[in-house]
Design a protein around this nucleic acid. Structure first.
Lengths: 121, 121
DNA sequence: ATTGTTGCAAACCATTTGCATACGT
DNA sequence: ACGTATGCAAATGGTTTGCAACAAT
C-alpha cells in the first residue's frame, strides 16, 4: 500500500472545495509539480482511507474530493446560462441531522443542489 | 434521436426499485428478450429526458435508474451496505423555495441525497 | 423514399493495476 | 539490501458514438 503524497493534500487544501483527481492533477502540473496521475489517484485513495478527505460524485459520475473539515456550501445553478451562486445550507444541515437520527444512521453527509432559471434569463 | 423502447420501461417497472443499465440489460436477456445494451442505454437516456425515470449514482459511480414516483422524495443511503431509505423532504422544499426567491431564480428544482452509515453497519 | 430504431464494434474516459525503476533507511 | 513510492503503459468497466442494416410509415 502507498501513503499519501503530501503535495496532493496541500493542493486539495488550496482548492478549498471539491476537486476531482483529474483536476488536482492538472492543477499540480500547471503549477510545475512533477507528479503522475496514478500517484494522485493513489494519494486520494489513501487520504480517503484515513478519513482526511470525503468523496462525492458529480452528475456524470466523476469522483470529487474535499477535505473533511471544510465548511461546505451548496449551489444554485441556472439551467440556462450556467451561472452559479454559492449558498448557505443551514436548514439542510439540521434536516440531515434530524433525519439521520430518526433512522439510526451515523456519520451522515449530504449533497444538495438547486437548479432553476436566473433573473437574467 | 431515438425514442424509448417500451420493454425497457416495463422491465424497470417490474424491478420496482433501482437498477443500472447493465442490470436492466442482463435481466431482459435472462428473460429471453433480444435487445442490445446500446438500446437499453439509449432508452434510459430518453426516459430520463422525459422525466419518466430518475437517476442516482452508486458509490462506484455506476448510474442507477428508477421510475419517478409522483411523490417527490429523497434518499438516505448507507455507504457501507447500500440500503436506501426514502425520506420526506419538506424542509428542503421550503429552503429551496426561499433561497430561490432571494436570488431571483424561477422554476427551481433540487437534488438532495443523504449518505451515512446505517444502524446495522 | 424517408425517417426513426437497432446493435455491433469501436471509441471514450475515469479509474485501477502490473511492473519495472528510483528512493529512503 | 529491503520495503516503499512513483509513473508509465496497459487493462478494466461503464457509457457513448459511428455506422450500416433494418423496420415503419
Amino acid at each position: 500500500m502507498s501513503r499519501s503524497n503530501p503535495r496532493v493534500l496541500s493542493t486539495l487544501e488550496r482548492v478549498g472545495g471539491f476537486a476531482s483527481a483529474q483536476e488536482v492533477h492538472k492543477l499540480m502540473q500547471r503549477e510545475g509539480e512533477r507528479i503522475g496521475l496514478t500517484t494522485v489517484y493513489r494519494s486520494l485513495q489513501s487520504l480517503l482511507g484515513e478519513k482526511i478527505v470525503d468523496v462525492l460524485r458529480r452528475e456524470d459520475g466523476e469522483a470529487i474530493y474535499r477535505l473533511c473539515g471544510d465548511t461546505h456550501h451548496h449551489h444554485l445553478v441556472c439551467k440556462n446560462c450556467g451561472i452559479t451562486v454559492e449558498i448557505e445550507g443551514g436548514a439542510i444541515e439540521k434536516w440531515a441531522k434530524s433525519v439521520a437520527q430518526e433512522q439510526g444512521f451515523r456519520d451522515v453527509g449530504h449533497t444538495a443542489e438547486l437548479f432553476g432559471t436566473c433573473a437574467d434569463c
